[in-house]
Computed example of a mutant assay.
Amino acid sequence: MTGPEVLDVARDALTTLLLISAPVLVVTLLVGLGISLFQALTQIQEMTLTFVPKLIAVVVVLLLGLPFMGQALGGFMSRLADRIISG
């Protein structure tokens, strides 16, 4: 493999990583922002109040996004296998 081919594989890997992780990170960010706003308004400083809703939101997003994530990873793997086979 030449240098540009390695960079293409790395770029494809990073793009796939961002596509897969972005929905989970965005939902976690929004839920955390909403919870911290709620805590600031009510002055409730309970640690489990921040952890449990984020955990539930991440599990729901992972369950809903699992087909997309699997398809994206499968596509990346097939593109990578094609590059390996073609030399």
Rank of each mutant, 00 (worst) to 15 (best):
V9K: 11
I84R: 12
T28S: 14
Q39E: 09
L64Y: 08
P4T: 05
L29G: 13
P53W: 01
V58T: 09
S36M: 12
R83Y: 02
V61D: 00
G32Y: 06
V31G: 02
M77A: 15
T42L: 05
I84P: 14
S21C: 10
D82T: 11
A13Y: 08
G65W: 00
T15M: 08
V58H: 01
A13E: 05
D82P: 11
T42N: 11
L80H: 05
V27Q: 00
G34R: 03
L63W: 02
I84G: 14
L30Y: 06
A10H: 07
A57W: 03
L14Y: 02
P4D: 07
Q71C: 06
T16N: 06
S36T: 13
L7G: 10
V9N: 10
L66I: 11
P4H: 05
V58E: 03
L19M: 10
A57C: 08
P23H: 01
V61N: 01
L29M: 13
D8V: 13
G32C: 09
L66F: 10
A72D: 01
A10Q: 09
L29F: 13
F51A: 14
Q43I: 09
V61Q: 01
S86W: 05
L55M: 14
A13C: 11
A57G: 07
L62K: 02
G34M: 06
E46L: 13
V26L: 15
P53T: 04
L80A: 15
I44S: 09
L66E: 03
T2L: 12
L25P: 06
L49W: 06
L25M: 14
G75Y: 03
L64S: 08
A22T: 15
L80S: 11
Q45G: 14
L18R: 10
V31Y: 02
T28V: 15
V52G: 07
P67A: 06
L7P: 05
A22H: 09
V27E: 00
V26Q: 06
L64T: 08
P4E: 04
D82Q: 14
G3S: 11
V6W: 04
V61R: 01
P67K: 00
I44K: 03
V58G: 04
V31L: 02
V26C: 10
V59K: 00
M1V: 13
M47V: 15
T16V: 14
G70K: 02
I56Y: 07
L25G: 13
V60N: 01
T28G: 15
D12R: 12
L37C: 10
I44G: 05
L66H: 08
I20L: 13
V24K: 01
L14D: 04
M1F: 09
G87V: 10
F76A: 07
G65T: 01
L18V: 09
G65F: 00
A10E: 04
L17V: 08
V6H: 05
L73F: 09
L30D: 04
E5Y: 04
D8Q: 13
V26E: 04
P23I: 00
L7T: 11
L55F: 15
L18S: 12
L29E: 05
S78Q: 14
I20E: 02
D8K: 11
V26R: 04
A57H: 05
L66Y: 07
G74A: 14
L17H: 04
V59L: 12
L7V: 14
T42A: 12
V6R: 08
